[in-house]
Design a protein around this nucleic acid. Structure first.
Lengths: 340, 340
DNA sequence: CTGAAAGCGCTTACAG
DNA sequence: CTGAAAGCGCTTACAG
């Protein structure tokens, strides 16, 4: 295996000089640098960041903790992070966080304790106190994308505003019986993404003066297509009090709801308007009205923040736009219309 | 940051003994071991694998190269790999391979050249000669899941048999005008997953004696839901020569095709039978007939193979079931039936 | 069973 | 501008 000593020998310099020529700052004569680079290229030498990290303290590796990889939003974020990290020359170590339990605890207490990463990006995870404490002990930058719990910097959509905007869209169309297909835990975790969307829904209804007996129509379900399907079946089952509009907490849920409506012979948008959140790649195909967000871009931004923090530990304002919420946009398609 | 010296001091032993007690084999008195373990626990010490790797040559880290994270099959495989690796105490370094080009080359020539991983798992990637050569130079085990190109071990579904079985299912139902929605590149890369499925399709038609003019109905499209949608639109556009059955190369494509059929007012399965491949989490909801495979389990198996190879470099037969194809299963639901 | 020493592959003061 | 030396955090022969 080619080591820096081999390069040095081949170039006729010391290891110190070879190191400086290849990576370190320090002065090196142009001619020397060229010789070293040629030697490195010849034998295919690439410095081992693991060895270098021992002395520099930098591993060129960022840990990403993420609850799902197989949900559209999370997958997009992950791809965005990955691309940005790679172009910065960093490796990405993936921790697919499971439900609370021993596996999850092990990520914080064992894997992240191995001093292997320069920073961690937490995507959509609600960190508990123990986890925050474990991370703080590492003294590595922690940047969060959505979710909740202490972090050095957090990028986030204003999910409450998103819930409000989605609901207002339906209200403006003339709907008054509006249901909400919420993510599981939305009621219990008011600060979570799903909790905030639910809160925005409630805010909008209250602001519009919708009678309270109409407001309780919230069903929680898995934030997935099958979850949306099952939840919508439940919501639309009683023809008597059926809502005329539905705010689904994600596009996947919304598409599941479209499918459920088809199943029940409910016309969309004639009998039921549906709006989602995400800007899922399938949204266009299903002509879904939605509030778009841009997860790939969000991942890229999270990496920018990490790099800023790594460059300057005490960065005063590492967040883009001084921490303003991440952009979202209402895109109206064919699943919403005025009620009949 | 707690180092092994701190543990040793606290336990009143040398670093060598502390190391042996915590990880290395070697003899250590039970009492000493307990003291060292207690000390480590007290100060929250976990050995740095990066430092250890310098001397052991083992990084406890496996690289995974994968072309997509946001396609169901790949996401499931990745989750399966991740879970298995974590439970073995290994980190997973993710390389999301892009199209051929400088970014892709960089993964092989720079990232994988950093001597950071003990092995690499390639999921569904067709390696070219240069890439195989780059990997061989690393002298690390390479295990492949699907895809093509040199590897120390390859786990793989028999995709040709899958294509054949899917097509036979339609033939047995009585169909003779059967179209194939193939993945892009299926025609150009006969050894690729999509190429093999296409070949199986052709095999089955030929074996059944279907006239050649019926056999050419193959459209290539992106292996995704929108890809299937667009491809099916193209395939079903000419009502004259419309097929009565469709073999889609993936469930996502099949679901897109179902959607396209709805759009065109073509009844499924009355006017058109559709079969997919994968066992996608949405398949049940769409009542899709499909050939299931088990990507999460496949990922787990790939890790087993890696561990076997790592344990015994020259393992004679690291593959489970001596390299027999991975399991698949025909699941008949409501999207296929006899032609009208 | 335990410790002192060497060394893995790097980088970084420190002299020169 | 360059080299010799020390040292990052570990583990592993080698003595004892």
């Amino acid at each position: 295996m080619a080591a820096i000593g081999d390069v040095a020998r081949l170039a006729g310099v010391s290891k110190a000089t070879a190191s400086r020529a290849l990576s370190g700052g320090g002065y090196v004569a142009d001619d020397t640098r060229r010789r070293v680079e040629a030697a490195a290229k010849e034998i295919g030498y690439i410095a081992s960041p693991d060895a270098a990290s021992l002395v520099t303290g930098r591993t060129k590796n960022v840990g990403v903790i993420i609850p799902f990889v197989n949900r559209w939003f999370f997958g997009e974020v992950l791809e965005g992070i990955e691309r940005a990290l790679l172009s910065a020359g960093y490796d990405l170590t993936l921790y697919n966080l499971s439900e609370p339990g021993p596996d999850r605890a092990r990520v914080f207490d064992f894997f992240l304790a191995r001093k292997r990463v320069d920073a961690v990006i937490a995507v959509g995870v609600d960190l508990d106190e123990h986890e925050v404490a474990a991370l703080e002990k590492r003294e590595k930058p922690l940047v969060a994308l959505g979710g909740s719990g202490g972090a050095d910097a957090r990028l986030s959509v204003d999910d409450r505003a998103v819930g409000q905007l989605a609901t207002e869209h339906l209200l403006h169309l003339g709907h008054t019986r509006i249901a909400h297909l919420a993510g599981v835990g939305a009621g219990d975790l008011p600060m979570s993404v799903q909790g905030q969307r639910r809160q925005g829904f409630l805010d909008a209804l209250a602001a519009a003066g919708i009678p309270p007996e109409h407001r309780a129509v919230i069903v929680e379900a898995d934030v997935s297509l099958p979850g949306g399907y099952t939840g919508a079946l439940q919501l639309l089952g009683h023809p008597g009090a059926r809502p005329t509009a539905l705010f689904a907490a994600s596009d996947e849920m919304a598409i599941g709801a479209i499918r459920a409506a088809e199943k029940l012979g409910i016309d969309v948008p004639g009998d039921l308007s549906i709006i989602g959140v995400d800007g899922h790649e399938y949204a266009e195909m299903f002509e879904l009205t939605t509030i778009e967000q841009y997860p790939g871009e969000q991942g890229r931004l999270a990496v920018d923040v990490v790099m800023a923090l790594l460059l300057d530990e005490g960065a005063a304002d590492p967040l883009p736009d001084s921490g303003a919420p991440l952009p979202t946009r209402l895109v109206v398609r064919a699943t919403t219309s005025a009620p009949r």
